[in-house]
Write a protein that binds this DNA or RNA. Structure first.
Lengths: 139, 139
DNA sequence: TTCCTTGCAAATACTTTGCAGACTG
DNA sequence: CAGTCTGCAAAGTATTTGCAAGGAA
């Protein structure tokens, strides 16, 4: 991965730095999308010295490179980021009790898009679909 | 509507005030969901003297009473509010160019919910679904 | 050596809270 | 009159920007 990252950065005239690697490593190991501050906390636990501002800037760069995806979960009021590599387009469900976030493997919206384009005359480029409810433990 | 509003407020031990009526009136007249500051601007244009803080507090009350719905559109990073009365459950599509927001009349997700509950073992309580793209003028 | 990156401080955007005075019922 | 509501100021949270020093190529 580090090699691929390096190439991507190089192609964009960017540099491979420890903070960028570290951010990507944490995201790779995490099973669910992280907020900037959660990421920052995990980096501190891993004894990686990095400023919150750098976390934000790194996330912006990685997003521009297409290595990570930015998303918002229902009513959370902040962004989350997850690794893109090797992952299909998918959506999430979040527990209102404990905050657990799980992936949804199916996306039923591809077929729907054509219909919506006809109905609204918009050209659809993105969609977001998130569910919330209660996970097995919190029910 | 003012009568219904009054009853709702009374039942909750709240009072009917000019700001609350004004906020609701603007939301009623608007064809798309507004942010707190958009609402504030419209109130100023209508020469209604009200503080932004009061707008926020009023929106909270109206939301608690179930008179308005709070929603977030994709990547906007702020909340929007729309009148609930007489409106079916629905979703939105937003233009990446001009910001125009249109309603989607259909919601294909009711059927999907049972499937997701089986897949994830969550109990689904809410879902959010928003599209973005380019409106006819911005294409 | 170039110029991209970082840390620190500060600014910005959105939203919430504290408090004393104003107003509704 | 009691208790809610409002405006103003300030605080809180998430995110962005400015700038000089640090570091990758």
């Amino acid at each position: 991965m580090a090699v691929k990252l390096k190439d991507e950065l190089k192609a964009a005239g960017r540099r491979l730095t420890r903070p960028r690697q570290a951010v990507l490593e944490v995201l790779e190991q995490c099973q669910y999308p992280l907020t900037a501050s959660e990421l920052y906390q995990q980096l501190q636990e891993h004894h990686v010295s990095i400023d919150l501002v750098t976390v934000y800037r790194t996330l912006t760069v990685l997003k521009e490179l297409g290595l990570i995806t930015q998303l918002e979960l229902h009513q959370e009021g902040q962004f989350r980021y997850e690794i893109r590599e090797g992952r299909e387009h998918h959506h999430h469900i979040r527990c209102q009790g404990c905050g657990k976030i799980a992936d949804l493997l199916l996306c039923p919206l591809k077929k729907l898009t054509a219909f919506i384009e006809k109905e609204t005359r918009f050209i659809v480029e993105h969609h977001s679909l998130e569910f919330s409810g209660w996970c097995p433990k919190c029910q």
